[in-house]
Amino acid sequence: MANGVLVLAELADGAPAPITAELVGAAQRLNAGPVSAMLIGSGVEGAAARITGVETVYVVDNPALAEYTNDAYTQAAVAAAQQAEPAVILLGQTDTGRDLAPALAYKLNTAAAMDTIALEMKDGRLHTTRPAYGGNARAVNSFAAAPAVATVRPKSQDAVEGGSAGRVVKVDFAAGAVRSHVTARTVASSEGVRLEDADVVVTGGRGLGGPEGFQGIEELAHLLGGAVGASRAVADLGWRPVAEQVGLTGKVVSPTIYIAVAVSGASQHMAGCSGSKNIIAINKDPEANIFKAARFGIVGDYKTVLPALIAAVKKAKAGA
C-alpha cells in the first residue's frame, strides 16, 4: 500500500541544495506518512547522511548519472519510487525537476502538477495550487491517479533544517538506454550575488531605453548588496544576459526588497517577482501595472530619479 511522501533531493557543491530542505518541510507539513528522499547522481552516496528530517534516503548512485539526462534520471527516479512506494512525490521546479517530473509521472502511470506554490491533503488526497495564465490566475488540482507527483516552486515553502539523518538504502539500478547526450555546457558568467539568493534585486525594464540605462541599476544593486535583474523584453533585446531575466520563463525571485525600474509589470514578469516581500516601483507612468503590486512607488523618469536615489542611499549609509 502506497504511503508517505518521497522528495527528490538535489545537491549544490556536494551539500543539499536549499530546495531539498524546502521539499522536506513541505512533505512533513502534509502529514501524509513517513517522509523519505531520493538522491540521484554519481558519487553522491556520501552526501546522503547530510539529508535530514527524513526517515529514509534512497540512493541511486551510478556513473551513468554523472550528468543530467532525461532518460537516465527518469529511470533512476522510477527505480527509487518503485522501492519507496510513496503516495506523493515532490520535486523542485528546478532545471532537473521541471524536466524530470512529467516523464517520471508518465512512467508511473500518473500525472504531474508543475510549479506548485501550495500543497494540502484533503480527504486523503493531495491538492495543489499553482499559478496559471502567466500568473493572472491560480489553479487548484487534485489527482485521479496515484502517486500524486508535484513540482514545488523554490522558496515557496519554508525549509525544515536539522533533525536526524535518514537510513540510507541503496537502490539497485542498471542504466538502460540513454538516447540524449550533453556534448557541451557553458555556464553563464555571473558576478556577485546569485539572483535567486539575493536579498535585494534591482531590475531594469524596457523603459530604460537601452543597455546603457543599466549603469545606474548596477550601481544601486551594488550599493544595496543586491543583484541585477532584467525584464524579458530586455533579455530578448540582448541588453542583458538571459541569466538575469526575472519572470515566468526566467528566474523566480523572492527577495526582501525588489526594486523595479522602468518595468511595466506585465503578468509574465510579475509571475517571477510577486513573492518579493517589498516591491518598490519607479516608473514615469502612474498607471503602470507594477504599482498595483508595489508597497512603495516613485512616479518619475528614471533618468532623474535613479541618480537621486543612489545619492540618498549613499547619504543614508554614510550616516549609519
Binding site: 500518473t110 500525472a111 502538477a113 491538492h127 496559471a132 493572472n136 490566475a137 491560480r138 489553479a139 487548484v140 488540482n141 487534485s142 489527482f143 485521479a144 491517479a145 516591491i279 516601483a281 502612474p286 504599482f291 498595483k292 503590486a293 508595489a294 508597497r295 512603495f296 512607488g297 516613485i298 512616479v299
Partner: peptide, 20 residues
C-alpha cells in the same frame, strides 16, 4: 483525466502602494 481541475480563480492582492 489523471489531473482534475478543482478550482480556477484570480488571486486577490491587497497591496496598496504608497507613492513618494
Amino acid at each position: 483525466p489523471r489531473l482534475t481541475l478543482e478550482r480556477l480563480f484570480v488571486p486577490v492582492t491587497d497591496t496598496k502602494v504608497e507613492i513618494m
